[in-house]
Write a protein that binds this DNA or RNA. Structure first.
Lengths: 163, 163
DNA sequence: ACCCTGAGTCTACTTATTAGACTCAGGTTA
DNA sequence: TAACCTGAGTCTAATAAGTAGACTCAGGGT
């Protein structure tokens, strides 16, 4: 049945349906412009509602809705703070789950710096010792991936009926 | 003027405005649910309009609009193909700029697999030799970042007037 | 000449986003 | 104690985007 008459053009479908794909789940969770920009604010240490609003120009209602969503998904958590001479309020900070997104955000930043127009980026991610952090793509054996052009996505437990 | 009376709670604003931030540019370019899901399809080797539509359940008009956008931004390019006994048509494949997003997508996938509910991911990224590829966060000196909790975002040419 | 298929466009409907006024809580000041 | 101030929201009406599904269009096959 392996008829090779046509010239093996392109796949009809993705190897894995959306429901079984972690990447798709990630996209459904954080694949929204405002959501990502809010996570950037949190990564920058901005905790307060109005500060985020000022930085992003986001409507209050949308910011409120997204913060609720991110909190309920465990990416942000409320953190009480006090300014001198004011009543205590709640800000938002990244949870561990939220901070675990840093590699993805770092990779995005690196991509944009190299592959999008707009000049150099002024935002820098650094560790506690002041060293800049970057991402690297590696193989199972630890060797770096130099050329991304050969990478393919496949189903992991291979499909038994590729019909 | 460096008055330390309050307990150094939180930053009022991000260290870098959106216009000078590559991460923000990346988010504005690909920070959209359908856009990201389309890039996943392209990464999976799905080239054809109706195949993407079937996989994603995306409305035709939205798919058409996003493909135009991604093409004009240079992340996808049209690629003619022929099925036997049918007229030639155009599909879409990732450009070099589009493939350069693979590290970011890989990092996202890894995040979701570890930090989101939903069971193991069946989508696997591998190199031409069949080895799985993953991302790693490293410092300038090449040492791996083990703990993400100390990473901060700062302005790179430091702000001269942090007033 | 007619049919078939895949890539779109078009239309009417529903939902999300937006700007801006308004509310609410609680500490400060008089 | 009462009026006041500030920051975090909610509410409302107008606009924009997303959606489902019918329709169009191109070109090879029959």
């Amino acid at each position: 049945m392996t008829n090779e008459t046509h010239d093996a053009t392109n796949k009809l479908h993705a190897p894995v349906p959306l429901a079984e794909c972690a990447l798709a789940r990630a996209i459904r969770t954080i694949g929204d412009e405002w959501t990502l920009l809010i996570l950037r604010e949190a990564l920058c240490g901005v905790e307060r509602f109005d500060a985020m609003r000022d930085d992003l120009g986001i409507p209050r209602s949308v910011l409120s809705q997204r913060l609720k969503q991110l909190t309920s998904e465990g990416l942000l958590q409320r953190k009480p703070y006090s300014l001198p001479g004011q009543r205590p309020r709640d800000g938002y900070v990244l949870t561990e789950r939220g901070r675990a997104l840093i590699p993805a955000l770092a990779a995005l930043r690196e991509w944009a710096e190299i592959h999008l127009p707009g000049g150099p980026s002024r935002l820098r991610l650094q560790d506690s010792d002041g060293q800049k952090v970057t991402t690297r793509l590696i193989k199972e054996d630890g060797s770096p991936v130099d050329d991304v052009s050969a990478i393919v996505a496949v189903a992991h437990p291979p499909n038994t009926d590729p019909a």
